[in-house]
Write a protein that binds this DNA or RNA. Sequence first.
DNA 1: GCCGTTTTCGGCCCGACTGTTTTCAGTCG
Length: 569
Amino acid sequence: MNKKIVIKTLEKIALLLELQGENPFKVSAFRKAANALELDERSLNEIEDITKLKGIGKGTAAVIHDLIETGQSSQLKELEDAVPKGLIPLLKLPGLGGKKLAKLYSELGVDSAESLKAACEAHQVQKLSGFGAKTEEKIMKELEHFGERSERLPIWYLQQIVAEVNELLNRIPEIQKFSVAGSFRRVSEMSKDIDFIVATEQPSEVKDQLLKQLVIKEVVAAGDTKVSVVLDAEDPVSVDFRLVALHEYATALHHFTGSKDHNVRMRQLAKEQGKKISEYGVEQPDGSIHTFESEEEFFAHFDLPFIPPTVRESGKELERLDELEELVSLDQIVADLHMHTTWSDGAHTVKEMGEALIQRGYTHGVITDHSQYLKVANGLTPERLQKQRIEIYEFNEAHPEFRLFAGTEMDILPNGTLDFENEVLKELDFVIASIHSSFSQPQETIMERLHTAAQNPYVHMIAHPTGRIIGQREGYNPDMPQLIKWAAEFGKILELNASPYRLDLCIEHLMMAMEWNVPIAINTDAHAIEQLDVMEIGTKYAQKAWLKKELIVNTWSLDKFETFIKKNK
DNA sequence: GCCGTTTTCGGCCCGACTGTTTTCAGTCG
C-alpha cells in the first residue's frame, strides 16, 4: 500500500467529517494522523506498530489497517455516500465552514455552488438560524468569483506537487535527465498547469511508469512524446510530461519554459540569422538541425549570454542583456534577516537555526522572534527578549567565524502604537516592524500604523509590507508608493519576504522601491530550518523584478550591514 | 479521535472577529 494514498484517505475523511459538522477536534485528529505519517520517514512496511506514532490511535489505525487489507476504506466510502461531492469545494468560500455547510445541506438541500446560489437568490439562507441577510449577501458575492478560483494555482501549492513529482522522476531509472519547465520554472506567482521535460531513450517504459506511479484523477493524453494528466490532489492539477531524446533536451526545455513572448522574440532573432527554432533544435540555413548540451549553449549559439528563466517574460529581456550581470543569484546571499525559533513559534532553537545558517555558507543572520502582542505565536516580552539575547551572544562566542544578531519581529498594533518601547528597542541589534492584525482597517489607519513604524529611529525594516497571501488574501492594502517614499526618507529597509505564500513585496512594488533606491532584504521568515531553503525562490523572484544586487541587503558584507544597522544609534 | 493521567474523562492554542444574537456560535489564523 502506497503511504501517500493512506495519507490522502485520512485527509479526505477529515474533510468529509468537517462537512458533517463533526467535532472539530475529531476532524483535526484525522489530519494529525495524516501528518504523523507524512513526517515519519519510514515506509508503511517498515512501521511495525502504527499506533506507536504520536497522533495515531485506535480509530485512525483501524482506518489504515482496513485500507491496507482491503485496498479501500469503508469509513471513507460511508462518508462519501453520506456527503455530496459538490459540498467539498464550497468549504473554500470564506465564512463557510463545516458546520454552516452541514446546516445548508440538511435544511435547504444545498449540495453544489449552483444550489447554494439558488437558495441565496430565493432568500432561503437568511432564514436559517445563525445566518442573516449579511451572510447571504456575502455568500452571493463570493460565488460570483467562485468558478474562476481554481483555474490558476498559486506557487506555494504547486511547489509541493513539483517536489513530489521530482522525487518520482528521480526514481525512474530510464530517465536520463528531467526538469520542470513552464511558468513554474519562471517562478510565476500563479500557474494553470505544470510542465516537465524528460529525456529518455525508452519513452514508452517511462510513460507506463508515470501512469502507474502518479496519483491520477484523469488521463488526458498518453503517447510516447507527451503524457498529460490531471493529478488527484487537493486542488486537481494538470501536469504535462514531454518525453524527448537527450540531444533534444535543451531546446525542448527552452521551448516549454517560454514565455510565449520570449520564444517569439527568440524565433525572430533566429530568423534574422536564417535559422529556425523549434523544440527539437535549431534548423540551420542549410537545413541541418543543430542541438545543444545545455540552455547555455543554446543561447551562446545566438551570441547571447544565458538568460535566466525568471526574466524570460515579455521578450524585452533581449534588450537588457547588459543588466543580467547585476541580477542577484543565490550564491551571493550571505545573510538571512528574518527567522523564528522555539522562543516564539519556530520549530528549532537559536543554536539550531544559527548552525543551519553557517552550514549554508552565510556570514551573518538575525534571530527575529515575534513580540508580546502575538500571544498565539508565543511572542516575547521584554524580559524574555533579554534572556534570549544572552543565548544569542553565547552562540556568537562559540562561533567566532559567524555573527548572529539579536532582533525582533515587532507587531505594529491595531491602535497604531508599537509593541515595544524605544527603551527596549534600542537594546536590540535589528528591529523588524510588521502588521499581523486588523487587516480590514481603512487605508488611512493602516498608513498611520506604518508611518509610526517607518519614522521610529530604532526600526530597521518593514516586513511583508502588504500582508498578502498569494491567491488567498489581498493583505491590508497599504498605499505602497507612499510607504516606499517613507522608506527612502527614513532610510528603512523593505522586505521581499521569500516565502512562496507571500512573495511580498510583489514585482511591481519592488521595481518602484528600486527607483527610490530603497534597500531590499530578501528574507525567508523561516519557522524551521528547512524553510531557509525558500531563499532560492526569493532570489529568483527578485530577478523577475530586475532587482540590482547592490540594493539587496543580504548580499552586503557583515561590515557593511553592521554599519547600516548602527547608524541610527 | 488522541492523549495523558490527579488512569477512563477533560482538554485539545486560543483569542479576535463577524454576524448573529441579546450572551454566543462559527470561522479563522
